[in-house]
Design a protein around this nucleic acid. Structure first.
Lengths: 162, 162
DNA sequence: TTTTTAATTGCAAGTTGTTTGCATTTATAA
DNA sequence: TTATAAATGCAAACAACTTGCAATTAAAAA
């Protein structure tokens, strides 16, 4: 529900501006993790023109993260990706074409407990990041042809991005 | 053993240069993840003068990653951190002071299998990234005083960094 | 409703981490 | 020992992100 996120904004004393509502709209529980530029382009296309400055999106994402609406995702790409904080799932990233697949199972609750038991410096854990990396089927097929070594920032046009 | 890493370099057809050996020396199985600048400063101190250019370290790290000597670590900081690829452990990062603690248990082998079973796009996984985030004991103690919200890039002088 | 006030925005400019081009140096194969 | 391709250092470029400041706007106060 979007209303719960609006509640979070209000609770944090943040104004309900059109930029924030538009940015909120750019996230859906279905969509893949997005970076500032993805959202910028999406809103540009949606609204027809440059209604929101890229800088504003950076600032909006920061405030969304601080209020717990979104969270960062570690994809080992060279920009920061975000997704809705209430969607607990993880990702497999193709290290050749950078395409991303999601998965829901996680099962590290026990690990979390064990970790805390042994930890010296921490007595609580707020969140975790669990992502897998490999070469997707499509890129594996094309691998013989290509000499390309592991390079997360490369981009193989054979697979559609993200 | 350092010799196995040298073997990796040779196998990849890379020259055994002093920059590479020095950079290799900057990694030990004990040390925390390091970024290019950490290594640059460490070698500067060690060798007395600017023997290696920062650019060379970037290039060296890239080649080390491609040959499987080091791997990237996701710490949600704003630069890329590396550690030896043969050290399988994970980290808890304090989201206030950015200090890092390591842990060895992992236990996600089963999850990995389950994920692959359900995956549509992948049929193998090369590596994974599992990191925890929270507020360390020291920073928790100081939290009442400080208004600071979650901001991974902030730095609290109360705790020693990294 | 209108006024007031402080938060938010857009623009331009800055900063940081990282990469690239190119001439020079150097490890290794011949 | 020489030849050659890879590796390096330097300067400059680049991309992602941040900051300062004046103008705008949501929401509290009147």
């Amino acid at each position: 529900m979007k209303s719960e996120q609006i509640k979070k904004l209000k609770n944090a004393g943040l104004k309900l501006t059109s930029s924030r509502l538009l940015t909120l709209g750019a996230f859906s529980s279905l969509c893949k993790p997005q970076n500032a530029d993805d959202i910028y382009k999406k809103l540009k296309k949606l609204t027809g023109k440059d209604k929101i400055d890229l800088v504003t999106i950076y600032r909006t994402l920061t405030s969304f993260e601080q209020t717990g609406i979104v969270k960062k995702v570690n994809l080992q790409k060279d920009s920061v990706y975000y997704e809705l904080a209430n969607s607990h799932h993880h990702h497999i990233v193709c290290t050749v074409c950078e395409s991303v697949e999601e998965f829901n199972l996680c099962g590290i609750e026990k690990t979390t407990k064990d970790v805390l038991k042994k930890s010296i410096k921490f007595n609580s854990i707020a969140q975790h990041s669990l992502e897998f990396f490999g070469v997707c089927k499509k890129c594996t097929k094309n691998e013989k042809r290509s000499v390309k070594k592991f390079s997360p920032s490369s981009l193989n046009p054979q697979c559609q991005r993200n």
